[in-house]
Computed example of a mutant assay.
Amino acid sequence: MAKLYFYYASMNAGKSTTLLQADFNYRERGMATMLWTAAIDDRYRAGTISSRIGLETPANLFETGTDLEAAILEQHAQTPLSCVLVDEAQFLTRDQVLQLAAICDQAGIPVIAYGLRTDFQAELFEGSKWLLALADSLNEIKAVCGCGRKATMNLRVDASGRVAREGAQTEIGGNDRYMALCRRHFMKAMRDGALPDYR
């Protein structure tokens, strides 16, 4: 039976790198894949999944209104798919997560989704919430806080490098806007409004 997998982590844990490695493993064995990433993420070239270590590959773009199930089934009819891989899965809607589950259950195609679990205020993203609820397999990719503990939280900083405690849930950025922290240092930074001191 095909499964829906959710690989989640904080920022800078290597989610996109892990996705690109999985895609390579399938393609190296002559198996077709279909890759998706969020259109809202404009840090790199549109229609590309890129990792911070320099790997990249083309991908389909999804927006909130994209019918993933229809698009995947159309591609599958042309070229049988062995796997669907989704980057930035936190930006999926509830309906899209249900569509991905249907791809597994009805079309027999495994789906592997990669994304953040929570935002900069420790709130679940919609896509992550429904993946945590519906995925057959949940897997955490480890990141490291500056103190050496496991980083599970995403601290947002403003353009001046100060802790941001308010704002829209989605604000695209990389190391210039976010820090991956353990819960202890995240909570202290949010409480004090100051960047962590790891001493």
Rank of each mutant, 00 (worst) to 15 (best):
A135Q: 09
L73I: 09
R162T: 01
G115C: 12
V157M: 00
L55S: 12
I49G: 07
A194E: 15
P110V: 15
H185M: 00
D41R: 11
K129G: 11
T152V: 06
Q75R: 10
L68V: 00
L4R: 10
G108K: 14
A89Q: 03
D23W: 04
M190W: 14
E123P: 01
V111F: 10
F91P: 10
L68M: 04
M11H: 07
F186P: 00
T37Y: 03
L181F: 01
M31I: 13
Y178L: 01
S51I: 10
G47F: 08
D197Y: 09
Y178Q: 13
S51T: 04
S50D: 03
G14P: 07
Y198G: 05
Q121N: 13
Y8L: 13
V157A: 01
D176M: 03
A107S: 14
G115Y: 05
E123M: 08
T37G: 12
P58S: 11
M179P: 03
M11Y: 06
D136P: 12
S50Y: 03
Q121S: 14
C182M: 08
V157C: 00
G30H: 09
L134C: 06
A39R: 09
S160W: 06
H76N: 11
Q21I: 15
G193A: 13
S82F: 08
M153F: 01
G173M: 02
P58V: 01
L131D: 02
S160K: 07
E140V: 07
D41V: 07
N139W: 05
C182G: 10
C145Y: 04
Y44V: 04
D119Q: 09
F62I: 05
L19D: 10
K129S: 14
R27L: 15
L138N: 11
V144S: 03
D136A: 13
G127D: 08
A151K: 00
S137H: 14
E28N: 15
D42P: 01
D197C: 14
E123L: 06
A101Y: 04
L4G: 15
R94N: 10
K129D: 09
N175Y: 06
A71F: 08
L92H: 06
A135P: 13
A13Q: 10
V163P: 03
L85D: 04
N175V: 11
F62Q: 06
T64R: 13
Y7F: 08
A133S: 11
K188H: 12
W130G: 01
G54E: 04
L124Y: 11
V157T: 02
G174Y: 05
P58Q: 01
I172T: 13
R162K: 12
C147K: 15
D105R: 14
Y178G: 06
Q90M: 05
L138Q: 09
Q90I: 12
K3I: 07
A39G: 05
D192L: 12
H185Y: 01
V97L: 02
L131I: 10
C147E: 07
A46F: 03
L98A: 10
S160H: 04
A89M: 03
D105Q: 14
D197A: 12
Q106F: 08
R117T: 07
G193S: 13
C147L: 11
F24D: 15
L155T: 00
D42V: 04
A13K: 09
F186W: 07
T37C: 11
G167N: 03
Q21L: 12
N139R: 15
T64D: 10
D192C: 13
A180H: 05
R156L: 06
A13N: 06
A133K: 12
A164Q: 10
A22H: 15
C182R: 04
